[in-house]
C-alpha cells in the first residue's frame, strides 16, 4: 500500500529525514517509536504533504501513485489520513459542516454521490459514539476550546468519518486518560480490516497493548534504525533508547 524509498526531507535548510525506507501492506499495523526530535512528526507531515517540508530525495508511493506530486487534499482523497499530534483550533468553522464537506469531497473522488442530510447525520452520530464524543461537540467550531483529550478524539472521529486506507496516528495516545485511551483504541480496532492499514506513532507500550502492531520501527535521527515485531516495543519500554542510540551513534 505504502512504499517509502530513501526519503530525505529538510526544513529551512536543516535536514530532518535522512533516508527513510518503509513499506506498509494492507491489513497491517505498523508502529513507529523513537526519541523526541527524531523526525516522527516530520515523516507524517511529509507523507500528508505539508508544504514547509522540502523533500530533497526519495519517493513515496501510495497504491501505485507517486504522491509527492499531489496536493495534500488529493492525498487525502486517495485515502491518506493523518491524526495530528497537535490538532489545531479553527474558530468559526463548525465541526459538522467541515466534516460534511470533507466526507463529500472524498465521496466525490470515489465517484459516489453526496450523502443526504439524514444519512450524514446518522453516520456522524454513529462515529461520534464510537470515539465517545458527545453530539454537541459536532456543533462547535473545530477543536476550539476542546480539551487535549477531546481534540484527539475528534481526530479519530474524523478518521472514522473519512474511512481512509492508510491512517497515521501521531501520538494520538498522549493527552488521553486511561478510559479515553481504551475507547479510542477500540474505535481504531473496530475500523481495522484487511483493506486498510495503520501507522501508529507512540512513545508508550500502553497504546500498543490495545492496538497490537504487526511491525515496530525505531526512528532515530531521521532514519529507521531498528525494525522488529511487537516484542521490540516491549524491549524499548523496558530498556529505553540508550542501546539504540549507542548502537547507531556511528552512523549519525
Amino acid at each position: 500500500m505504502l512504499q517509502i524509498k530513501n526519503l530525505h526531507a529538510q526544513i529551512e535548510g536543516k535536514p530532518i529525514l535522512k533516508g527513510i525506507n518503509l513499506e506498509i501492506n494492507a491489513g497491517t499495523v505498523h508502529a513507529i517509536m523513537g526519541p523526541n526530535g527524531s523526525g516522527k512528526s516530520t515523516l507524517s507531515s511529509v507523507i500528508a504533504g505539508r508544504e514547509e517540508y522540502e523533500v530533497t530525495e526519495g519517493e513515496i508511493w501510495f497504491n501505485g501513485v507517486n504522491i509527492l506530486e499531489l496536493e495534500p487534499e488529493e492525498r487525502a482523497r486517495e485515502g491518506l489520513f493523518l491524526a495530528f499530534q497537535y490538532p489545531i483550533e479553527i474558530p468559526g468553522v463548525s465541526n459538522a459542516n467541515f466534516i460534511k464537506m470533507a466526507v463529500n469531497e472524498v465521496r466525490k473522488h470515489k465517484g459516489l454521490e453526496s450523502l443526504s442530510a439524514t444519512d450524514f447525520l446518522k453516520l456522524m452520530r454513529e462515529k461520534a459514539a464510537l470515539v465517545g464524543l458527545k453530539d454537541d461537540f459536532l456543533k462547535r467550531s473545530v477543536n476550539a476550546g476542546f480539551s487535549g483529550g477531546e481534540k484527539k478524539r475528534n481526530e479519530i472521529f474524523q478518521l472514522a468519518m473519512l474511512d481512509p486506507k492508510l491512517s497515521i496516528l501521531d501520538e494520538t495516545d498522549s493527552g488521553l486518560d486511561i478510559d479515553a485511551l481504551r475507547t479510542v483504541a477500540e474505535g481504531v480496532n473496530a475500523l481495522k480490516n484487511s483493506e486498510n492499514a495503520f501507522l501508529v506513532i507512540t512513545h508508550y507500550q500502553r497504546l500498543l497493548d490495545y492496538i497490537v502492531p504487526d511491525v515496530v520501527h525505531v526512528l532515530y535521527d531521521g532514519r529507521i534504525v531498528e525494525t522488529g515485531d511487537k516484542d521490540l516495543a516491549l524491549k524499548l519500554e523496558d530498556q529505553g533508547y540508550d542501546w539504540v542510540i549507542e548502537k547507531h551513534k556511528q552512523e549519525a
Binding site: A48, G49, R50, E51, E52, E71, P72, E73, R75, A76, R77, F81, L82, F84, P87, I88, I90, P91, G92, V93, F98, I99, M101, A102, E105, V106, H109, S141, V142, Q158, L162
Partner: peptide
C-alpha cells in the same frame, strides 16, 4: 497556513479551505 493545511489534509481544496476560513473570519 497551518489552518489551511489542516483542512486540506481532510480533503478540502486550498480554495475551499480559504473560503471556509475567510467566511469564519467575517462571521
Amino acid at each position: 497556513q497551518d489552518e489551511i493545511f489542516y483542512l486540506q489534509s481532510r480533503g478540502l481544496s486550498k480554495e475551499t479551505a480559504t473560503q471556509l476560513l475567510t467566511n469564519a473570519f467575517g462571521a
